[in-house]
Design a protein around this nucleic acid. Structure first.
Ligand code: MN
Ligand code: MN
Ligand code: ZN
Ligand code: ZN
Lengths: 129, 129
DNA sequence: CAGATAGGTGATAACGATTATCGTTATGTC
DNA sequence: GACATAACGATAATCGTTATCACCTATCTG
């Protein structure tokens, strides 16, 4: 039903070209920098379409949603509160224990999001007094 | 430095009176219903003050922040995407594995938030075809 | 007590991310 | 080509939250 238009393909290409976690604004700017300016509403619509088709993934951080490529195994995120760096990790046992905890409370799980906050290696080093 | 004023005490009392997870608007309405109307800005400021003093806790959900009493052990949350019901759970092993995962990536953890989405027992029953 | 100082309060403007609206444009089908 | 169906883009609107700013309180000081 939803079409993979020129601009949606371009968004997808940008996202698939790295492991970055993009927000809508960054993508609009990247398109613009590439000489292919795009309306911000089109970015939001395109991202929603791509995500609903499973072509990209997203994480909801406190302020904004960030999108990333979907061709990776499920993982969760660590966010550096100093520089914004996002580190990925996956832990099979944590996933299993989550399922167990949900089951114990009678919950039918459809998803989850684990975000850890702290200082990345770089920023922890830099802030030593 | 920050004062525990009459309205802040009232907010704290409401929050401590149950295990609910309140948003700013609900608290303003509760105050109003109790005959003690309060400006919405005062609610936000009061909640920020109470939280920074460790008198209340909060969780950041996709759209809004919700506040709850702080006199409970750390726990995480399951949110029913159908009715909004929030179930709490805590899993010691999950917490420990998170620390291990962070350490492995060189992250100094300052916090985390695990939110699981799905259907609560009630809603799962109701949606059987 | 009078004045000074430090916060707090409340109405409301501003903000930032996202969504809705609406006229225009591209794409697909006959 | 003509019509239907989405997508596009500019922009208004929405919503949670924060900033402003003109009063209010306390609390302190002499
Ligand atoms: Mn990721
Ligand atoms: Mn809770
Ligand atoms: Zn960092
Ligand atoms: Zn439910």
């Amino acid at each position: 039903m939803a079409k993979l238009t020129t601009q949606r393909q371009a968004l997808l290409d940008i996202i698939n070209a790295s492991h970055r976690h993009w927000d809508a604004d960054e993508l609009a700017r990247a398109m613009s920098d590439a000489g292919q300016s795009i309306g911000i509403a089109t970015v939001y619509r395109g991202l929603a379409a791509l995500e609903s088709q499973g072509l990209i993934d997203s994480i909801q951080l406190a302020d904004k949603k960030r999108y990333e490529r979907a061709d990776k195994a499920h993982h969760d995120h660590m966010v550096c509160t100093e520089c914004g760096h996002i580190e990925e990790f996956s832990h099979q046992t944590i996933e299993q224990l989550q399922l167990a905890a949900a089951h114990e409370k009678g919950f039918t799980l459809t998803g989850h999001q684990l975000v850890m906050f702290g200082l990345c290696h770089q920023c922890a080093k830099g802030s030593e007094s």
